[in-house]
């Protein structure tokens, strides 16, 4: 249904062009749930905003295609894109806390979205609001509340309800729960999973928390420095990650990961400079297994390592050995020291 091909996105900045997303390709089937993980600044938000053509003014798609039911969204007119937003591809924004306009009631804001795309009367739209509020577990009377009268968790659910209101084919959820405490987070994620099972929307789920992807998504994409490092069936990915970065994500702090809160920034070192991209693998400076040759000079393409499993690493054939060594913290500390 959605077929993203070689998507590249650049921001114009004072310091020159910043390539936030490079050569990203993936597909999304009807009803499929896709998780995108990666540390802060790796381009997750940028890549998914592009699906709605919602990039900031200084951002532009410089290459690639986004095929939605066969039509290239990159080439569509603004009016066509506007009709597509919300109705077909809906967004649950990264900062749902601030995604509601403070001067209108929640109900008014949901109704507005419904009525912008349908011919529903005010009462019909209201009935629809009550329905989706039920789905996310909010009382109908909350529709008449202003955002400041709701708790963080309620606001989040209201934003989710808004995204569901037109039963879009695709829901893009950009870190929908980061601002909430862990308990509320868990409840909302569970609710999202249940809803997705009930309605047939596909979902793109962006998160820092790799364990969330394990629970709710069929497919996972690991991004690093604007590129896809690994793309796989979730089960295959957790059984045998093929990219050293993915191994780092899974293994760096397994004890914390176990309680469901893996901290991604904990791989030693910092992400690459997107302003001055160098040839070679993006992850090489922090990779404990990088060599002095191919990894430094040639950017690895996504190579198939198993059924529905690809990784952008020159040494996928040695992945089993890497996995064993990646379990040892010392491996990572040494890489960080060498990388400097």
């Amino acid at each position: 249904m959605l077929d993203v091909q070689n998507l590249t996105i650049e921001y114009t900045t004072a310091a020159g062009p910043l390539r936030a997303v490079e050569d990203v390709s993936f597909t999304l089937q009807r009803g499929e749930s896709l998780g995108i993980v990666g540390e802060s600044g790796c381009g997750k938000t940028t890549a998914t905003r592009a699906l709605l053509r919602l990039l900031p003014k200084n951002g532009a798609i410089t290459a690639g295609r986004i095929l939605f039911d066969g039509d290239d969204l990159v080439r569509k007119s603004d009016a066509e894109i506007r009709r597509l937003r919300h109705r077909h591809i809906a967004l649950i924004s990264q900062s749902a806390m601030n995604a509601l306009n403070p001067v209108y009631t929640v109900g008014e804001q949901i109704k507005e979205g419904i009525r912008a795309h349908t011919r529903m009367s005010d009462q019909e739209a209201r009935a629809r609001c009550v329905e989706v509020f039920g789905l996310v577990g909010l009382e109908a009377k909350r529709l008449d509340s202003y955002p400041h009268q709701l708790s963080g968790g309620m606001k989040q659910r209201a934003v989710i309800a808004m995204a569901l209101s037109l039963e879009p084919e695709i829901i893009v959820a950009d870190e929908p729960t980061t601002a909430l405490d862990v308990v509320v987070q868990g409840r909302i994620l569970q609710r999202l999973r249940q809803i997705r099972e009930r309605i047939s929307s596909s979902m793109i789920f962006i998160t820092h928390d790799i364990s969330v992807v394990g629970e709710s998504c069929e497919t996972i994409i690991v991004m690093y420095g604007g590129r896809i490092m690994e793309r796989a069936d979730t089960r295959s990915f957790f059984r045998a990650p093929a990219h050293p970065y993915s191994m780092g994500l899974q293994n760096a702090f397994p004890s914390i990961a176990d309680i469901g809160h893996a901290d991604l920034v904990s791989i030693p070192g910092s992400p690459p400079d997107l302003l001055a991209p160098q040839p070679g693998c993006r992850f090489r400076a922090r990779c404990p297994f990088a060599d002095a040759d191919a990894c430094q000079t040639r950017t690895p393409p996504l190579l198939q390592v198993a059924d529905r499993h690809w990784a952008a690493c020159w040494y996928t054939d040695q992945a089993a050995g890497f996995r064993a060594r990646a379990r040892d913290h010392a491996t990572w500390r040494k890489a960080a020291a060498d990388g400097r």
């Binding site: 709605l52 919602l54 506007r82 009709r83 597509l84 937003r85 919300h86 109705r87 809906a90 967004l91 924004s93 900062s95 601030n98 995604a99 509601l100 306009n101 403070p102 001067v103 507005e112 979205g113 912008a116 795309h117 934003v159 808004m162």
Partner: peptide, 24 residues
Amino acid sequence: DYIEMARAKGLREIRILYKHAARN
């Protein structure tokens, strides 16, 4: 963020400008 959200809802720019932004 609520302006971006209004865009994501597929509202017209003029409506976003005067209904959502100007009011605030």
